[in-house]
């Protein structure tokens, strides 16, 4: 059998390549991001056949494969389905910088939506978070239409 090779003089080299990317976010996301920026509204799009509401909006229903045209606002409140307190850093590919930790990734179903979104929650103590909690979007003061940043974070609705 071919032996594994051990070479004390093996050389490793570093290569750095900038890989800039210019996303054309498209008709549906443009509308979504504009509504967030200009009106602090979260909009989805409704399937004309099965009437499912998708947030963020997209062109076709994944079940019916029909073009969706009807935009409608959904609530900025919703239910926390799942979460994780992230304790390891990695390159945030939207900025090319290390992601600040800890942060809590929150998977949320907004009221009025049939699909889910992922954003962050302003609570990093896992003992104070539970799946099923009610949460609400907190919009950014300075809204730019960039990525999903015009929602700054989600917060837990206290009872």
């Amino acid at each position: 059998m071919e032996k594994d090779r051990k070479d004390a003089g093996a050389i490793s080299i570093t290569a750095m390549a900038d890989m800039p990317y210019y996303y054309h976010v498209g008709f549906y996301y443009s509308r979504f991001l504009r509504e967030l920026r200009d009106s602090k509204r979260i909009v989805g799009v409704k399937c004309p056949e099965c009437e499912k509401v998708y947030v963020p909006p997209r062109i076709v229903c994944r079940d019916c494969f029909v073009t969706m045209e009807e935009f409608l606002p959904v609530s900025s409140e919703g239910t926390l389905l799942a979460y994780t307190v992230t304790n390891f850093s990695y390159t945030d590919t939207t900025k090319g910088e290390p992601k600040k930790i800890p942060y809590t990734a929150a998977y949320i179903k907004l009221d009025g939506s049939d699909s889910n979104i992922v954003h962050c929650l302003d609570e990093t103590d896992e003992t104070r978070i539970k799946a099923g909690m009610r949460v609400r979007a907190v919009f950014s003061g300075d809204r730019t239409g960039d990525y999903f940043h015009d929602i700054d974070h989600f917060e837990i609705i206290e009872h």
Partner: peptide
């Protein structure tokens, strides 16, 4: 998804943890 999901997902582990 590059626009709405990427920065929050935390690579392979985040979604599994959630």
């Amino acid at each position: 998804d590059p626009i709405t999901e990427r920065e929050f997902c935390g690579g392979a582990i985040g979604p599994l943890a959630a």
